[in-house]
Amino acid sequence: MASDMSGSRFFVLEEGMFGPYDTRFSKIAPVNRGEPPQCPQCGEPMGMLMWLPPYRIELELYGEGLGDFVEGPGDDVLISQRFAEAYQAEELTGLLGFNPVEVVRIRRKRKGPSHDAVPPYFAVAACFGRGAVDEAQSRIQRSEPVTCPECRSAGVASVQGFALEPGTWQGEDVFRPRGKRGSIVVSERFSVLVQRHGFTNMKLTPIEEYVWDPDAKGPPTSPPVGPG
């Protein structure tokens, strides 16, 4: 199994939990929400409720310093201004929003230096890309079968690595793939950008090595079920 599509490699993007820049955020009232995007074919929601203005947050600092990438509730994440500027200068694609947030307060969760200066942050969301999970080449246990060939939404019980179906990726550098919308997948260009600038609180795992198995189910014991 490989994540190569026309020479491209792909990675799952997660926060660098327990690292020196471990940072998370929570939303502060009033929290306004809009309807989630829907699959154009089956009409099922393709994500969580959209976060609408005002964008007011509390930063939770677990590491020594504030990270460039911050996860929180919902599908939204925060990126620092320095990351946003580099991302836009390199003309990467796939992130939506870039809405400035108001940092109301910082709560330090572990001992460490105080932070008087807080860098500007922006709320962004990864687009729902065309790249689709290749069920035959992935080791995913589904809690329910895939029934819609468009969104390919189905419950996931465990993941022991996955691949993208050849010909489905359309060049996005950050996206949520069809059939695995719970993960943010990034391109090799994105990975190079992170390494070149040393952006923090980002963990990049090749998709073929990505493991998510909260109930220790192990690899799938039966062939994957594809759309009908």
Rank of each mutant, 00 (worst) to 15 (best):
S191L: 12
A84Q: 06
H115E: 05
I184Q: 03
P37C: 05
E14W: 00
Y87I: 03
E44L: 14
E14I: 02
E35P: 11
A216Q: 10
Y210K: 15
F199T: 10
G129S: 06
R9A: 08
A125C: 08
F128H: 09
L49I: 05
A157F: 06
T221K: 15
Q170D: 13
E144A: 15
G43D: 12
Y121F: 15
E64H: 09
R9Y: 05
T200A: 12
R107E: 08
V225K: 04
G161W: 00
Q88W: 01
G74N: 03
L61S: 09
F199G: 10
Q41A: 12
Y210E: 11
F190K: 02
L61C: 09
L164F: 10
G112N: 07
G72N: 07
W169F: 02
L193N: 09
P177K: 01
G74T: 02
V192C: 06
R139Y: 04
I106D: 02
Q137D: 11
Y87K: 02
R108G: 02
L52A: 09
E14P: 00
E102W: 02
F162C: 04
P113H: 14
A123L: 14
E58I: 10
M202V: 10
I184G: 02
E144Y: 00
D213P: 06
L95R: 00
Q170E: 12
T93L: 01
P20T: 07
E15K: 13
V174C: 09
